[in-house]
Design a protein around this nucleic acid. Sequence first.
DNA 1: CGCTATTTGTTCAGCGATTGAATTATTTGC
DNA 2: GCAAATAATTCAATCGCTGAACAAATAGCG
Lengths: 412, 412
Amino acid sequence: MSLTHAPAGAVRQGSLRELNLALVLGRIAAADRPPSRADLATATGLTRATVSAVVEDLLAGRLVSESDPAPRSGAGRPARGLVLADQGPAGLGLEVNVDYLAVCVVDLAGQVRHRTVHRADLRPVAPADALARLVEMAGAAREDAARHGLTLVGAALAVPGLVDDAGLVRLAPNLGWRDVPVPALLAEHPPLVEQVPGVPALTVDNEANLAALGELHSQPPGPSSFLHISGEVGIGAGIVLDGALFRGVRGWSGEIGHLPVHPEGRPCRCGGQGCLEQYAGQEAIVAAAGLARAELPADTATARLAELAEAGDANALRALHDAGTALGVAVASVVNLLDLDTVVLGGGYAALAPWLCPPVLAEISARVLTAAWSPVTVRPSRLGAEAAAVGAAGSVARRIVAQPAGWLARSG
Amino acid sequence: MSLTHAPAGAVRQGSLRELNLALVLGRIAAADRPPSRADLATATGLTRATVSAVVEDLLAGRLVSESDPAPRSGAGRPARGLVLADQGPAGLGLEVNVDYLAVCVVDLAGQVRHRTVHRADLRPVAPADALARLVEMAGAAREDAARHGLTLVGAALAVPGLVDDAGLVRLAPNLGWRDVPVPALLAEHPPLVEQVPGVPALTVDNEANLAALGELHSQPPGPSSFLHISGEVGIGAGIVLDGALFRGVRGWSGEIGHLPVHPEGRPCRCGGQGCLEQYAGQEAIVAAAGLARAELPADTATARLAELAEAGDANALRALHDAGTALGVAVASVVNLLDLDTVVLGGGYAALAPWLCPPVLAEISARVLTAAWSPVTVRPSRLGAEAAAVGAAGSVARRIVAQPAGWLARSG
DNA sequence: CGCTATTTGTTCAGCGATTGAATTATTTGC
DNA sequence: GCAAATAATTCAATCGCTGAACAAATAGCG
């Protein structure tokens, strides 16, 4: 229903080809079967002649390759199928979290081609040292990628905190980071990726945002608008609207953990009262289940909760039900506000989804005016704990698909 | 930070001109002074030759006209200023509300060129009859517009309720409408507007959404992302993100009135509990202020409240403060979620803003994590009660600006 | 008053990309 | 073996942008 947006800048002569390169490549990426040139022509509205010319450029630039034709019945010359190349540009995903470092490489098709996780408590580690370790892991990842014919063209770093436009980590409370200038710190190491026009060498983003992007680009394709909630010690959300992450005016959207669910309730360290985090955060659930915190390292708390709930432990079940109800109140607010029909429970919530979903759905159906006309789906995330790193790498790869001209200009 | 979006469809030969027509016209519309062709060339990145050719088309199509040059110091041939034409296409805005019908005409520049309001209690009137009256008013508006050289190219109707994609009014509780097929009812009358390719003859939308669009296009230009809250008997919100209305998956976004602000609080007719509407809706404020409802027609309730508050009536002041606090809890949720920096109080709230803003701001600063880094502005709406009708008409006019090719194809 | 510098706007040959029709390539079905 | 059908390419024509040259109009200055 919204007005079609014109491209932001001028539409110059050459832009025409750039736009059609992106259009055709995007179609190839979105197709569930390798499309032929003729398929692309009918799907895009371009003529076959134009599609052939565009595809020739894409083949020359090694962004797509020809594959076995999609099976077809009837007479006629057989088609040649087109698929995203499994060699060529790829994205590097980095993640610093409370209890692990992760690095991964994702290719154009969204496949994870490399993954390394290094478990360690990062809270006592200085930011510069944590990043240095990450750089070391990334170096190994790059070599591995090169052996598969992949060239890293950009990196994205996920951190559990607020990041500003310049990549400065303003505040990552659970990590103990404050005002960490990530790009400057990484600039002291040799460059991780090859520069490509139109692809930033490094972006830094909130973990919840990148996890949502990971979910968006996971296979098979899901809805293009949804809410992705990362339930860890803090609770963050990534809001995907019409296939694009919504970042807000300053990039700080999705702070669902501080939605007031009991306005006169428990005080929160954010200064507010009755924030969701105080009722559905990891620590709150653990406390409500009667577990001693000392004997529960952060990274096993959800596993332990799931175990207890599976075994029918009454305290754990009650704690999860109450957390789910609080979460449902917050989710009902979001759905009333944004009219989304899909909510994905990610991070630590993914493993607890069997117990969280019912109370969340109950609150939604009780509190959302339009739920009667169209149901809301609540389901666990597809990707595991490393959704953010995969989403980070994927966001780089997607950028090449969305703007192939930069890569093509580079490789001649 | 977001990826630049390519146009949805194919970029064909002629699309290039279409896009540049929209680009140049958009610049003329956005400029605060009449720009010259040279200004447009530097602003858009196109060459002066291209801009001249594009402007020639726009002049021929009567979408822009030449005006006195913008004052400039220094030597050189004087520029010819370009402004949006005050004759040519215009949008028709229609509104059915509980206690009035409104019709208005807005030209390309966003100026209101005609306005008619007909006060009446519409609740006992059948939808078909209400629409028939509106058509009659629209006929007069069209004649008046024609005398000013304006051609109506599309109509938008604002209703206080939920509307689906096809224009069916699923539910307008305060009006007593349910499943009213507006397009079909209007099709029985002679057409209101001239058909132009790319401009729908009629769109039906929620009043809160269109009021937000009215605010977006009001002069002088404000922020491109904000929340607009229409506080009437019900409370609706229009969410504007990056200069575009966000409608949600099914077009039912902005139901802020049913955000739970006291999850275990008063039951709401929506079936939920503790909805904002029960604490900050018109009826709730009136009741809290101790006013007898019988002696207060809906359309004077807010005026009476403002009067009492102005006079220092303790009950009214307390009622407004409590309502503002409840509203602030809901607004804090929205700001945490979407990271907006501007909240506009519209509808009945506009007149009550002096008393509502302080408690709203207090809740925001207490509950929004990022408020410390960047303040949130809360202010009353600029447009009056007919914001929705003006926004409706303006949305049609803006569509011509965004897609001038359709109009130009029509008028040769 | 006349000259120069400066800025605006137009003209025009050139060029890149799309277009549509014709052509070639390759397979199925009779 | 031949006709029909579908895929992909070739090529002259056309559309719209480009860049440079040119014409128009004014202020500043001697």
